[in-house]
Structure formats: C-alpha cells, structure tokens
C-alpha cells in the first residue's frame, strides 16, 4: 500500500527557561493512503506535538531536531521554507483541533473564513464561485440552513456546529491528509457520535487519509484502521485496530484498555486506573518511560530503553517483557 506520510526518527523539543522539554523522542510511523490512523496517549505523551510537527505549527520555542524526517508524498517537509509549507497547509494537509472556538476568528462571519481558506490557495476563484463552494461544503458537513449560517459569526454556533465549520474549512481544498487533534474531546457524546460518522463518510467518499489523535481508545475502536499508542514521547505499541484490542502487547496498552469505562461495568468491582502520573519530559527516564507506573516492571526497565519487538506483520511493541530472556513470572505476555 502506498504511504502518503512517512515519519522517521522524529524528535521535537521545546527550549524553555526550565530546560529542554523533550516532547517527542524518536518517533517513526507511516500513514497509508486512505486510512485512519489513531494516535492514542495521555496528556503529555507527545501525541499532539508529533502531529503539530508535521506542519510545523509549534511556535518559536520548538525545535525539530537534526536527523528527523517527515516525508509527505515523497517531499521532505522539514527542509521546506516557510512559504513552501504555507502552500501545503490547508491545501494538501489540513488540521482540526480540540477547541473550535479558539480556531475561528470571532469577528468574521464563518462563511468568509471558509472562503479565505480556498482563495488563499486558489486566488483565481470568483466571489460567487467561492460562495457556492462554501454552501456545498456546509451542506456536506450537515450544517442546517447553509445560506443563513454562511453569514453567522462563530459565537452564534454551538460547539458541535463550530467543529463542523472547522471540518468544512479543513476539507475546503480536498486535502490528501487530515490531521484531527482531539476534535471530539470537548463535545458531548451525542455530538461526538455525529462528528465521527462525518469523518468516516469523508474518508469513504473522498479517500482522505486521516490521523486521529485522542486519549480515548473507545473512540479509536469506532473509527480507526490502525493505532499507534504513545507514551513519554515514544510509540510504545503499533498495530491494526483488531489486533490492538484482541492481542495487546504492551502493559501501557493493557492499562488504557482496562481504564475505559464500560456501560456494563460491575458496580461492585473497582475501576482499574493507571496509577501514578506521566514522567517529567525535561528529564525523561533513561529506560522505558512507563516503567515507573508499570505493574510488571523489572530492574532493567528503569535503566535501559527496550527495542521494538515485531509481534506480527504490522504489529510492534517496545517492552522488555517481550524479550526472549524475560522470565515468565508476573509476565502477562508469557503463558508458560
């Protein structure tokens, strides 16, 4: 299958007064043409920074380190000039974010904001042509009364409707890749359900590839074809959607799966959280970043970072428990 995006050894840091925050510490993955890849992890795992690095939207304190490679349709994005990147943003790669209110200009009617996205890349388009395109987009993302909504301001929309405007804007130029950074986290489940349906339809009808970032494996199950689980600036495990739920091979993934509240959860059974908190990325642990919270951690885990183990085609995991030398005791991945 054709890879639309290939990321190799991505390392992104923030230079702050308190030292270097190593948010992403060597991430390698790809996105297949027309698939929905989920990136899952807690706050601070580096999932958003990874996605923002692709279009370099991270602000002046961020540095993409030497040796990082982001290959989009065989073009190296890290080598591009600002102007060249601008031509790609919103045209070939679009993003939607968690908070649609802060992504929209409160002083400009939403219709015009979507038009701007088109005319930025296609200055030849005439005014009525633009308007017709926007109305069609609004209809596409199921914004009721597109003609009236075209002239409305962001504050006149509910959170869910604003997110639809953002999706319309992101899709305006039929991008090849859509990066969705927790687009439903701030929304009600009812609206989340509607937006997920929308994204599935877009992927089906336009063949858009999507990177979907979330902390909720439940959402991933509904939407994605493959998943990368991130923690401490690294990909802990990567697998196809069925594989990750049926055959998880990392203690962190096990923890995430156990933490999903189930509507049928036995009320007398305690929930199983992942105890502890994520590591401080100004001084990341020398070994596996999850070791301090891992119920199965060995001595080596805190000292040395494990290598990836290939479990099966397309399924890899970074964990010492998978090493042939790991003893079977207290090892969820060894049954002997």
């Amino acid at each position: 299958m054709e890879h639309i995006l290939e990321i190799n050894n991505l390392r992104t840091s923030f230079l702050t007064g308190n030292g270097e925050v190593q948010a992403v510490r060597g991430v390698t993955f790809h996105v297949n043409q027309g698939e929905i890849l989920g990136i899952v992890g807690e706050s601070g795992s580096g999932k958003s920074v990874t996605s923002m690095s692709i279009l370099q939207l991270l602000g002046s304190t961020a540095v993409i380190k030497e040796g990082s490679s982001i290959l989009f349709e065989n073009e190296e994005l890290t080598k591009l000039k600002k102007k060249e990147l601008r031509a790609i943003r919103g045209e070939k790669i679009s993003m939607i974010f968690q908070d649609p209110m802060s992504s929209l200009n409160p002083l400009i009617p939403v219709g015009r904001q979507v038009e701007e996205m088109i005319s930025e890349h296609h200055p030849e388009k005439k005014k009525d042509e633009l308007k017709a395109m926007v109305l069609e987009l609004f209809d596409r993302v199921k914004i009721p009364e597109p003609e009236k909504r075209y002239r409305s301001y962001p504050h006149e929309f509910s959170g869910g409707m604003r997110q639809r405007v953002m999706i319309a804007m992101a899709l305006a130029n039929r991008p090849r890749l859509l990066i969705a950074d927790e687009p439903t986290t701030a929304l009600d489940v009812t609206i989340q359900d509607q937006i997920l349906k929308q994204l599935r339809e877009l992927q089906r009808d336009y063949g858009t590839s999507i990177i979907f970032i979330t902390h909720d494996l439940g959402v991933v199950a509904e939407l994605c074809t493959r998943v990368a689980v991130m923690y401490g600036g690294l990909i802990m495990e990567e697998a196809g959607i069925d594989e990750i739920f049926e055959n998880p091979r990392h203690p962190y993934t096990l923890g995430l799966l156990a933490a999903i509240p189930d509507i049928k959860q036995d009320k007398n059974k305690r929930l199983t959280p992942i105890e502890g908190t994520p590591p401080d990325m100004t001084d990341p642990p020398a070994g596996c970043p999850f070791a301090a919270r891992c119920p199965y951690a060995r001595n080596i885990c805190a000292v040395k970072q494990p290598e990836y183990v290939q479990i099966s085609e397309g399924h890899r995991s970074m964990c010492w428990l998978l090493d042939g030398r790991a003893p079977a005791g207290n090892n969820p991945f060894r049954k002997d």
Partner: peptide, 25 residues
Amino acid sequence: GLLGSIPIPNPKLAREKVTSGIQGD
C-alpha cells in the same frame, strides 16, 4: 439516544453497531 452515542470500545462490535445516536443539537 445517549446510550447509543457512547463509543463501543470493541472494533468488531463497533462496526456492527446498529443503534443510532441523536440527530441535531
């Protein structure tokens, strides 16, 4: 409708999901 909107944390069941959520705002 609220119950039908909750994501099902199981990809196989999620694909077979027939329950629909709630339309509109």
